[in-house]
C-alpha cells in the first residue's frame, strides 16, 4: 500500500515537473529563436533554417544597427519619452494620492475629486475624441502627444493610496506638532516610507511608455518622430506583407526582400534590452504591486 502510493506520487511528481518545465520552455524558446535569427546569415534566415542556434553565425546585423540613424533616433525619442513620462507621472500621482487619503474632515472636497478620478477610470471618450483633443491642442508630431495624454494613471493613484493608508498616523502627527506643512509631511515622511510602492508605480510607467506603439502611430505623421516601438512596428509590416505573399511561394524566392529579417530581429533584440536590464526590479516590485493592487479593502 505504502509502496504503490509512493510510486504513484513519484509519477505524479515527474509529470508535474515535465509540465512546468515544458511551459517554461514554451516561453523561453521563442525568445531564443529571435535571438538566433538576429545572429544568422540572411540566406539561412530567408530559407527559415534557423531554429534555436544561429546558422552561419554573423554579427553583421548588429553592425548595421550601429550605423542605422533612424533606429537610434527612435531609440532616443523613446528614452526621452520614458524619462519625461516618469517624472510627470510621479509629480502628479504621489501628491494626488496623498491628498486623497485625507479624511473628509481635513479635506472636504476629497470625495468630489475621488469621484472624478474613478469615473475617468470607468468611462472614457475613446480613441477618436481623444485624438481630436490632442490634435486641437496642437500636439500632433510633438513628443508631448506621447506623454501628456497618459499623465494621470488612475490605477497608480489608487495603488499609492493603498500604501499611504498603511503608514502609521503617529509619524505624521509628530511631524505636524513640530510644525511641518502638509507638503513637508508628504516629502519627508510619506515619500521615504512609500519607496517600494513608488518603485512599483515608476516601473508601470516605464514599461508602459517604452512598450507603447499606438501613440506614435496615430500622433506622429513622420517616421523620424516615431518612438522605438512604432518604428519596429513599421518594420513588422514588411514581415506581414511577406506572410501574406507566402501563399504564392514565389515571393519566397525573392531573397533580397527577405534579407532584412535578421536585421529586424536584431533591432527587436536591442529594443528589448532596456527592459531586460530593469527586469530584476520588475520582478521584485511589479509582482508585489500586482498582489497589492488586486487585494483591496
Amino acid at each position: 500500500m505504502l509502496d504503490t502510493k509512493s510510486t504513484g506520487s513519484k509519477i505524479r511528481n515527474t509529470v508535474i515537473h515535465i509540465i512546468v518545465i515544458g511551459l517554461g520552455l514554451a516561453c523561453l524558446l521563442p525568445m531564443i529563436n529571435i535571438v538566433a535569427i538576429s545572429f544568422s546569415g540572411s540566406a539561412a534566415v530567408s530559407a527559415n533554417r534557423v531554429g534555436l542556434l544561429p546558422v552561419d553565425f554573423t554579427a553583421l546585423a548588429y553592425k548595421r544597427i550601429i550605423e542605422d540613424s533612424q533606429f537610434w533616433r527612435s531609440f532616443r525619442i523613446s528614452v526621452i519619452r520614458v524619462a519625461l513620462t516618469l517624472v510627470l507621472n510621479l509629480v502628479i500621482t504621489v501628491p494626488m494620492a496623498y491628498a486623497m487619503t485625507r479624511s473628509k474632515g481635513d479635506f472636504p472636497a476629497r470625495n468630489i475629486y475621488m469621484n472624478l478620478l474613478i469615473f475617468a477610470m470607468l468611462f472614457n471618450g475613446g480613441m477618436i475624441p481623444t485624438y481630436i483633443v490632442v490634435k486641437n491642442l496642437n500636439l500632433l508630431n510633438s513628443i508631448w502627444a506621447l506623454i501628456l495624454p497618459g499623465a494621470v494613471p488612475v490605477f497608480s493613484v489608487i495603488l499609492l493610496m493603498n500604501f499611504f493608508k498603511g503608514v502609521p498616523k503617529a509619524l505624521e502627527e509628530a511631524a505636524i506638532i513640530d510644525g511641518a506643512s502638509q507638503f513637508q509631511v508628504l516629502l519627508q515622511i510619506m515619500v521615504p516610507c512609500a519607496k517600494p510602492s513608488i518603485a512599483t508605480v515608476s516601473l508601470f510607467s516605464i514599461v508602459g511608455s517604452w512598450n507603447d506603439f499606438f501613440g506614435g502611430l496615430i500622433y506622429m505623421q513622420r517616421v523620424e518622430d516615431y518612438p522605438i516601438m512604432t518604428y519596429i512596428q513599421s518594420l513588422n509590416i514588411d514581415l506581414q506583407e511577406l506572410v501574406k505573399n507566402a501563399a504564392n511561394s514565389a515571393a519566397l524566392e525573392n531573397v533580397a526582400e527577405l534579407s532584412n529579417r535578421n536585421l529586424n530581429a536584431a533591432k527587436i533584440v536591442v529594443a528589448v534590452i532596456p527592459l531586460l536590464i530593469i527586469y530584476p526590479f520588475l520582478q521584485r516590485y511589479l509582482i508585489s504591486g500586482l498582489v497589492m493592487g488586486s487585494v483591496k479593502e
Partner: peptide
Amino acid sequence: RNSLQYHAMVFPGMVFLILFGYLPMFGLIM
C-alpha cells in the same frame, strides 16, 4: 490652510484629467 495645500496637490493631476479624460468625453458630442 491644509485644505488649500491639498487642493494644490490635486490640481496638476486634475488639469490633465480634465484635458485628456473629460474633454474627450465632451467630444463624444461628435
